[in-house]
Simulated assay, not measured.
Amino acid sequence: MSQSDRFVPRVRLVDVARAAGVSKTTVSAALNGTGRLPAATREHVRQVARRLGYRPNATARLLRTGHARLLGLVAREYVETPWVYAELAYFGQLVIATTRAALAHGYGVVLLPTSGPDDCWLDMPLDGVFVVDPVAGDPMVGDFLAAGVPVVSDRRALAAVADGSRQELGRWVDFDHGDAARGVLDHLEAAGAERIAVVAGATTACFHQESVQAYRDWCAERGRSPLVSYLSGPGVRRALGAVEELLDDPVPPDALFVLVEANPPLLLDAIQRRGLSVPDDLLLVCTTEDPAARYTKPPISTLGFLPGETAETAVELLVDCVEDREGDRGRLFTADFQARASSAGLRRRPGRTPHRTS
């Protein structure tokens, strides 16, 4: 086969217009999702384009419109371990939901590292960025806004860099983390817990800081001593180690509120191997989106932060900003607490103490 035989001419916009019997302007509007076209016309043009194998020239479109139709996504909580967030249940679901929502609007998603040489992310042709769990005073949020790139993040991050020139480029999705934590603590107290311990991340991300502060305030209001074990980084081993450390306390807790992502079956197994029964001896609530929590024995109570809903809203806010449409400035969500058998109530069996390892 000669080189000329292998060459296939690129299908142009005018070719699609000619085959569909419409103007080039109509083809452009139909394929870009713009304009006021009848649904039948838009679908007809798209079918013709697919049949002919038409692909828009991304470079030409970028030069013409100034948009690459790419959105960035990054989880900033894990600055020291740039890609580990993709391995965790919550962030895994968030990535999928963000990608699905972006595609529905005609955008692709680029997963960004939490850190990189010389702020490499600023060289990417991104139309907007969803910055999840930013650290305190997050420079990434400020850098993108200063570069004129729209950002969706939490309210604290946007407030830290807010000024007149950047205000319109920032949108937010957020939770009242303190209120969510208090709801779990009240539930555990009602189930009989008197010494509740918390496993948290050693990070300045808003979720961990607000949740732990709410816990400390809650304990102070009741005259109780807080018991917190901090993780230096993500990972199942670290989470299990933090739980074991708490159970080895001279006065062990009778309830655990785990704020970090942990594997529910492994966590339950670690507790049971130390001679404790859940919930008879120890109540347990985990912050996780891992569906396995529903199927352990006993099923584990969970506090969830709606990755699907927040991702869809974040994408809508970004697209509104990128395409200069009027829209909401942000949205406050309510966390999803699912009370299951693991926090149903203590029985306080006499003489029952944790097994201590040497």
Results as ranks from 00 to 15, higher is better:
Q3F: 10
D5L: 00
R6H: 03
F7D: 15
F7W: 13
V8E: 10
V14Y: 10
V14N: 13
V16H: 13
R18L: 14
R18T: 12
A19E: 15
S23K: 14
T26P: 12
S28N: 15
T34P: 12
L37T: 09
P38K: 08
A39C: 01
A40W: 01
A40Q: 14
H44Y: 00
V45N: 09
V48A: 08
A49F: 06
G53K: 07
G53D: 14
N57F: 11
N57L: 12
A58S: 15
R61I: 00
R69Y: 12
R69M: 04
L71V: 13
G72M: 08
L73Q: 11
L73H: 10
E77W: 02
V84Q: 01
A86W: 07
V95L: 14
R100K: 14
R100W: 08
A101V: 11
A101Y: 07
A101N: 13
L103F: 10
G106R: 14
Y107Q: 11
L112V: 07
S115C: 02
W121I: 08
M124T: 02
G128I: 09
V129L: 11
V132P: 03
D133Q: 09
P134M: 05
P134L: 02
V135H: 01
D138P: 02
V141P: 03
G142T: 06
A147I: 11
P150L: 02
P150G: 05
V151H: 02
V152N: 06
R155F: 07
R156W: 06
A159E: 12
V161P: 05
D163Q: 08
R171Y: 05
W172Y: 08
D174F: 02
F175C: 03
D176Y: 02
D179N: 10
D179F: 04
H187G: 10
A191M: 09
G192R: 14
R195I: 09
A197R: 04
V199S: 06
A200H: 03
A200Y: 03
G201K: 01
A202V: 07
E210F: 01
V212K: 13
D217S: 12
W218Q: 05
R222K: 15
R224P: 01
R224M: 11
P226S: 14
P234E: 06
R237W: 07
G241P: 10
A242L: 06
V243Q: 13
L247Y: 10
P250T: 07
V251N: 13
P252N: 11
P253M: 12
D254S: 12
F257T: 03
L259T: 04
V260D: 06
N263T: 10
P264S: 08
P265G: 07
V278P: 07
P279H: 08
P279G: 09
D280W: 04
P291D: 11
A292H: 06
K297S: 15
T302P: 04
P307G: 00
E309R: 14
T313I: 09
A314C: 05
V319N: 06
G327M: 08
D328V: 07
R331P: 00
F337P: 05
A341N: 00
R347P: 07
S358H: 15
